[in-house]
Simulated scan of single mutants.
Amino acid sequence: MKKLIPVVVMAVSAMMMVGCNDTKKKMPVVTVSDSIRTSEDDNDTTVYGVCGEGSSMHMIQLITDSGDTIEYMFGIEDDNPVQGGLLEGDRMAVCGYKTEDGSLVANKIINLTTLLGKWVSLDKNFEIEEGGTVRNFTNAEKNPWNVWKIYNGNLLLNRDTFEITSLGADSLYLENNNGIFTYKRQKNEGGVKLSQK
């Protein structure tokens, strides 16, 4: 029996090494640093890039990840779709459509730079990190979030889909079928004071 254990360990190790090599060949190339991209994302209409210096009250200039500079109009007839503000150089996720005259209109703009950081509520304490990772600081949580991405203008935390209804410097409001969830940005490593609305 003792002679069989090293043989089994070596066989399992060899299979894992072969499996890892095959997995690396099949893995998609990650081209967007702010979210997890897989082949399932083919239907994602979100355009990712950096906010350009030509952005204004009713227009965002987006320098896309592919290097194109495009301009989206917004907020002229509809509500302002910007969540997290427009600051030159910030990472952005934009969803929109093309009008009959060929101009682009944004109906959802998410400042991903503002979204990153530590967020707390009465029962959650987590950090949204660059690269699609969520780090949790709540030990008792049953199903902690550990990955995030933007998909068609919504925030996906693991398998939970949320609409970002408000994103500011200090607050984050997420909504789904289960209700509205309010988070405050954690500013210090010590105790966190929360106020409820």
Rank of each mutant, 00 (worst) to 15 (best):
K3H: 08
N177W: 00
S171A: 07
W145A: 06
N188D: 04
N177L: 08
Q61C: 00
T31D: 10
D68T: 10
G179H: 01
T64H: 04
S55F: 01
K118E: 14
D123Y: 13
L122Y: 01
G96D: 14
E163Q: 02
S103I: 15
S166H: 06
L4P: 06
I70S: 01
M73A: 03
V94Q: 09
G52E: 03
N158W: 12
T138D: 13
V192A: 04
V47P: 02
K142E: 15
K2E: 11
V147N: 09
K118R: 14
D41V: 02
P6Q: 03
D42C: 01
N143L: 10
E71Y: 12
G75L: 11
R91W: 03
T45Q: 12
M1I: 10
M73L: 01
K149D: 00
Y173S: 03
N177C: 05
R37E: 05
S55M: 04
G179L: 04
T165S: 07
T38D: 05
Y48E: 02
V30M: 10
S56C: 03
D44I: 06
S121C: 01
D101F: 11
T161G: 03
E175P: 02
V147R: 14
K25P: 01
L172E: 15
M59W: 05
V32S: 15
P6K: 07
V94N: 07
K26Y: 09
G168I: 09
L156H: 14
C95K: 12
A106R: 12
D90T: 13
Y151Q: 15
L4Q: 10
N111S: 08
T133M: 11
G54K: 13
G49I: 06
R91T: 01
L116W: 09
P6A: 04
R37P: 01
L157F: 13
G19T: 14
M17H: 07
T99L: 11
N80L: 09
S39M: 09
K108D: 11
V12D: 13
V50A: 05
E88L: 02
Y173E: 12
D90I: 10
W148C: 06
N146R: 13
D90A: 09
E77W: 09
E71F: 08
T23S: 08
E141V: 00
L194H: 00
A14H: 09
S195W: 01
Q186W: 02
M17R: 06
P28S: 13
Y72T: 15
M92V: 12
S103Y: 15
F181E: 01
M57E: 07
K3Q: 11
